[in-house]
Design a protein around this nucleic acid. Sequence first.
DNA 1: ATTTGCATGTAATCTGTTACATGATTCA
DNA 2: TGAATCATGTAACAGATTACATGCAAAT
Lengths: 177, 177
Amino acid sequence: MRTLKYAILGLLNQKEMTGYDLMKQFESTLCEFWSAKHSQIYPELKKLTDEKSVNYKVEPSENGSEKKIYHITETGRKDFIDWLSMETKAQPTPKDVSRLKIFFCNCLEPSDRKFMLDEQLHRHTSRLKHLQNNQTKFDKVPDSNADEFGDYLVLMGAIMREEMNIEWLKKCITLLG
Amino acid sequence: MRTLKYAILGLLNQKEMTGYDLMKQFESTLCEFWSAKHSQIYPELKKLTDEKSVNYKVEPSENGSEKKIYHITETGRKDFIDWLSMETKAQPTPKDVSRLKIFFCNCLEPSDRKFMLDEQLHRHTSRLKHLQNNQTKFDKVPDSNADEFGDYLVLMGAIMREEMNIEWLKKCITLLG
DNA sequence: ATTTGCATGTAATCTGTTACATGATTCA
DNA sequence: TGAATCATGTAACAGATTACATGCAAAT
């Protein structure tokens, strides 16, 4: 499906940047729905360059060494927009070890079950606080044509997901009795 | 992390079955939080047999050919319970192509954006209906010591997830104006 | 006759993580 | 002096999908 390719093209369509900058984007803005390590990003950038979807210029970095600033080409932009417009096929299962463990929770003693659920509840609660804090950076809903609009929507989605997880775990704890 | 191993051990801990039965379980009960194709299951069963975590007996199948009925060993059961009791590390990002596309939605024309969100809303709505239908199979909450208890909890979780997705997408559509 | 379900496997490929590897600069 | 940040890459491995491959039975 080459999803990483399109994630990179989408980011380079917003503005030109280095592989390192892309990595930072995956770590911060995109981390709620996509991730990629530098060891995956650099080879993909090479591949995209070969395919003429992106190109780069070499410039000196802060320190003495050199860095590659990548930008999207017209070919790349067209490819990206086609992918974005295309119907999204039914997704493969989002794999979730926590839910798998809850599925098997009856194999544990009642006290251990409670411990497991409490632990998960705690993790999701801190995560929610963190996301809510991120949201304060938006003083209002961004214009729907701005790059920050998508940013805002997915952050809202992440918050709602954590709220749902917390609500679910609380219900599970109740049902344990 | 060998999660597939523990998913299989957990299922075989419930009752003995063939690789084919396991495949069916992944397709039905577990599909909301884990998946595995037969091409992954059969080699894993071989590996688990080598590790003495499972064992099997050969029996004739409905047709003339033979089938292998796998069961968990004491070693396997201990290993499974240890995994289940262990603290679950912070999960890797659940990757989500739909959310990635929404993140980049400002690159599309307003009518195409609306189309994309409507399409996703439709998909999640049918999914929710399907899950709610599955839930009718439980006339009451199963006992917390029964195998069906985990089943019930994760189905409830899947329903809440779809409800959240629908609510989120509706909000997104509203914000598009 | 053809499709569907039962039943089992392997090979090739793709995707992603961890580890290996280097080198400069800045800050504590 | 040592850790953190910027910056780029490769190699080995793990995890997962698609395709290849076979064979019987029952139903349409």
